[in-house]
Design a protein around this nucleic acid. Structure first.
Lengths: 184, 184
DNA sequence: TGAGACATGTAATCGGTTACATGATTCC
DNA sequence: GGAATCATGTAACCGATTACATGTCTCA
């Protein structure tokens, strides 16, 4: 099997946006500036090169729309290879370590999971995220206990980690509940 | 006034570690790999060049300890310029936009605030973080209401943002309370 | 007619990742 | 003697930031 070229985080975000509609570089840029989904670069210096790389590697295909008009747009759509790469990324096995280290990636995966993952697979992902965050939160919490009481600020900072991971665990549980409520 | 050379996020993290002790590149690396404070690069390829830049720009000074021994260590300490740059960064005005876009920077600032910011300044920072996160959480929450009910996953992802910012706001409030409890 | 949105790019630079490279010390 | 840890770096690559550059269309 030929190894597929690497795709950056921004690359996957773009592939995800292209999942169910064709977009120009400008559109992608708009999407990133206006939508709250993980603030990615809103600069053309990041997006246009990223699209070029994706095209070079065969994940997207660009086509000029309105060649005859004075304002042509280069519109990109996913190729089958792109769709496969995106699906493989979205469906990656949720490993605790990776969830903690690249948390935001997993929300991006979830956001793009529609029509890519089965409900059961999404549930598995949510369970893994919840478990990883819960256990890591307790790990951090244990650390706070060993910190000197006379210097509260570092402990505050660490406490934020605890609160944050706990909140994510609670969120995952709530999503799971909603998911199960719909299953019927 | 001469403009000070720019310092990267990793640069500030290193300056913060050097705030009250001298460390070698190896020590810094250890600190990043073992401590949970914002997982920075654990690779020598990031840390040694970063230290070199900081030294080149006059923020830290390296001195070889144990020149005579077979295992000398290059130990770095803050210069006064480095201390000033760190203090300026830690004491930056908390602007809502920046808090939302670079949230983790503010926890790093807080972690290093001991002996740099007054209690009042820390309180101001915490209040700003709380307010920014609370208002942004509600902004995101409003967006979730406009999302199609038949595609829950993107909404789940957005909901995580809501939960996360709310948790941070609650954390800030709790820190403030603890801070005030101590003030007497 | 001027502002602002539409639309696409390039160039310089910088910093982080990955992998490579070296050698001493300590402990089993 | 070998593995793990101590300790310091370099080189190639890649991708993001910043700033620059260009021109059109629309609407007030």
């Amino acid at each position: 099997m030929t190894k597929t070229p690497p795709v950056s985080r921004l690359g996957y975000a773009i592939l995800g946006l292209l999942k169910d509609r064709a977009l120009s570089g400008y559109d992608v840029r708009q999407e990133f500036t206006t939508s709250p989904m993980g603030h990615y670069s809103d600069s053309p210096g990041a997006i246009y090169p990223a699209l070029k790389r994706l095209e070079r590697d065969g994940f997207v295909a660009g086509r000029v729309e309105g060649k005859d008009t004075l304002r042509p747009r280069r519109v990109y759509r996913l190729t089958s290879a792109g769709r496969a790469a995106l699906a493989a990324w979205i469906g990656a096995k949720p490993v605790a370590r990776d969830i903690i280290e690249n948390t935001s990636d997993w929300f991006l995966r979830l956001a793009f999971a529609t029509d890519v993952l089965s409900r059961a697979e999404v549930a598995t992902m949510l369970e893994a995220i919840g478990a990883a965050c819960k256990s890591y939160a307790e790990e951090l919490h244990a650390l706070t206990q060993t910190m000197p009481a006379n210097q509260p600020y570092p402990r505050f900072a660490l406490n934020h980690g605890v609160a944050s991971y706990r909140a994510t665990a609670a969120w995952a549980a709530q999503c799971l509940q909603e998911l199960k409520g719909k299953s019927r």
